[in-house]
Simulated assay, not measured.
Amino acid sequence: MDIQTYLRQRGGVARTATLHRAGFPRTCVDRALIAGHIARIRRGVYALPQDAGVLGLALQHNALLTCLSAASAYQLWTLDNAGPVHLSPGHKKAVPGSITHGRIQHAVHPWLPVAGLADVLIHALRCLPELEALVMVQCAAQRGDVTVGFLRRKLPGNRNARARSVLDYVIPRADSVLEVLANYHFRMAGLYVRRHVELQGVGEVDFLIEDCLVVETDGATHLEAKQVKKDRVRNNATVVGGRLCLRFGYVEVVHHPQRMVAQVLAVLEQSRQGAFSAR
């Protein structure tokens, strides 16, 4: 493993001592630094070049990265990392071009200019669109890094009502961002949804909707030839078992959720009218 791959697995940043323990001696670190493969953001702390900019900005203004800009430090799921940097400058003047968040209330990252996970998630829930905040919280909650109950208690009063409502859509387990988003949209449509249901002859399916329609959300791995063959067998077994099946990929779930839900509703309505009954 090279030093860049190692840093990517750690969220893009590591201290010198950590790199040495991982098998990258000082000579290796220095070579990578000279070659531009890594960047020094402060004494004894190195980052991938693409991460060094925002960390350097925070250090320059003695501020802390938070909200969406801190997601990579905690390896949280995100939908889109583009946009202004999110900073918590404390009592100091806001940094031009950044989105300013309030004071930090919890312990910060032990060695990076990054707010603690609790503040990062609270800021995200107050700041970001619902789905962007939801995937970040879902990732942290299912890893056991934080509980929904803790976040709910930290968001009291009417002014935090929208933020608290996002927490209602955190689920015990999601194998991908797509599952989180699909579950949100199906529930918003008023559908009866069961997740990770074990069906005889099929195995575990992502969703069973209204107890008759199986819905699978397919990430990039489902495009691999071996997985395509496996999915075909599972689809056939689903139909043989007496249930219909729809599959949706990244584009449908993330960019066209209304179309996805419309197709689910259309199949359910046709089923109610007997369109799939034996003739």
Score class of each variant (00 low, 15 high):
G219M: 07
F276A: 01
V239K: 04
L65W: 05
Q50W: 14
R173Q: 14
M1Y: 02
A63T: 05
Q50I: 11
P49T: 04
R153W: 13
E179S: 09
T27G: 10
P49A: 08
V180P: 04
D206F: 06
G97H: 13
H101T: 06
L125A: 01
T5N: 10
T238G: 01
E210T: 08
Y184F: 15
V13A: 06
G203M: 12
G219I: 03
Y192C: 05
G56A: 13
A58Q: 11
H61G: 02
V251H: 14
A174Q: 00
S271E: 14
Y46W: 15
R15L: 12
I38P: 00
Y6C: 04
I171A: 09
N81R: 11
G149L: 14
F150C: 03
Q50C: 06
I41C: 04
Y192A: 14
R152S: 12
A140E: 06
Q258A: 15
Q138I: 03
H20M: 12
A163F: 11
R173P: 00
K92T: 14
P96V: 10
T147C: 09
A163V: 10
A174D: 03
A189Y: 03
N81V: 05
V253E: 02
M136G: 00
A115R: 02
A52P: 12
F276E: 05
V95T: 10
P257Q: 03
V251P: 01
G144I: 08
Y74G: 00
G149V: 12
R195T: 13
N62A: 15
V193Y: 05
L208W: 01
R43I: 09
A47V: 08
M1T: 06
P172C: 07
R15V: 13
T221Y: 10
A161Q: 15
D231L: 05
N236H: 11
V166D: 01
Q263G: 02
V95H: 06
W77Q: 00
A141M: 07
M188F: 00
V264P: 01
G90W: 12
A82L: 13
R259C: 08
E130F: 07
L131T: 06
T238R: 01
R8W: 08
Q258Y: 08
A163R: 04
G144E: 03
C139L: 02
P89S: 06
L68T: 07
K92Y: 14
D80M: 00
H123D: 15
R159Q: 14
A22W: 11
E132N: 11
V54H: 11
I209Y: 00
A22Y: 08
A35R: 15
A275F: 12
A82D: 07
